[in-house]
Simulated scan of single mutants.
Amino acid sequence: MAEATRQTAARATLNGLMTWLGEAGLQAAAASAGLRAAIDQHAAAVRDALGDPERGPSVVALAGYATGVRDALIEAEWQLPPIAELDWARAEWPTLRLVAVCALARSTGYL
């Protein structure tokens, strides 16, 4: 697959995640210092896991990471409550990690 096609597919994955979960999570984080701090910690862990803590991960690596988390959650039969019913003050690790991916995607200009 050509690199441009991979990048386009990765951006589509990240856009879908942002639409599904990220916008609501980042909006909630803007109103809560504690949630914002938790998302920042998860974002730092993702940057570290993907090997480039200074510049941030590539769009393909970031989308691949998000897809891997999603696949692991499906395998574990974990389900996110409907976004409108989510208690952001008690958001679970998977929710925070996926919102952190969205925060990274936005901060690196992928979204």
Rank of each mutant, 00 (worst) to 15 (best):
A61G: 13
T19C: 10
I83G: 05
A37L: 13
W88A: 03
I39S: 00
G22M: 07
A4E: 13
A44D: 11
G16S: 12
D48L: 13
A37F: 07
Q41P: 12
Q27I: 04
A76D: 14
T8M: 12
L104N: 00
H42L: 05
A10R: 01
E75F: 14
I83L: 09
W88Y: 09
A66T: 03
P57G: 05
R90T: 03
A66Q: 02
L86S: 04
P81R: 14
W20H: 10
L26S: 03
A76F: 01
G56W: 05
E77Y: 05
T8Q: 08
T95K: 02
P81G: 13
D48G: 09
A10T: 05
T8R: 11
E77C: 11
L96T: 05
A103C: 08
G22H: 01
G16K: 09
I83Q: 03
R6E: 04
R11D: 10
G56A: 06
L98N: 01
T67V: 09
V59H: 00
A91E: 00
G34M: 11
D87C: 15
W78V: 14
P81L: 15
L80V: 05
Q41E: 10
A49L: 15
Y65C: 06
R97Q: 07
R55P: 05
A9S: 10
V60L: 06
I83R: 04
A9M: 05
P57T: 02
L104R: 03
A100Q: 05
T19Y: 15
V46I: 11
D48K: 14
A45N: 06
V99Q: 00
A61P: 12
A44I: 03
R11P: 15
S58V: 06
L96A: 03
W20V: 03
I74A: 04
T67E: 07
W88Q: 02
V46F: 04
T95H: 01
